[in-house]
Amino acid sequence: MEYMGIERDRLHMSWVSSAEATKFIDVVTRVTEAVRALGPNQHFVKQKAKVA
């Protein structure tokens, strides 16, 4: 995704066990902050289909 032009911080991957509530909160906080910092996604968003 990054290679194709989607910002690195928009996509996150994490492993969280059901017993790791604290880690889950950390991850969610980190992801939210990172994505918020980037602002709304400008690419790879399809509104009404473009026709040609």
Binding site: E2, Y3, G5, H43
Partner: peptide, 14 residues
């Protein structure tokens, strides 16, 4: 070369 491009340039390139 593509990996080294800026994010926006990558998007435009593809």
């Amino acid at each position: 070369k593509i990996e080294e491009m800026e994010t926006e340039d990558k998007w435009r390139f593809f």
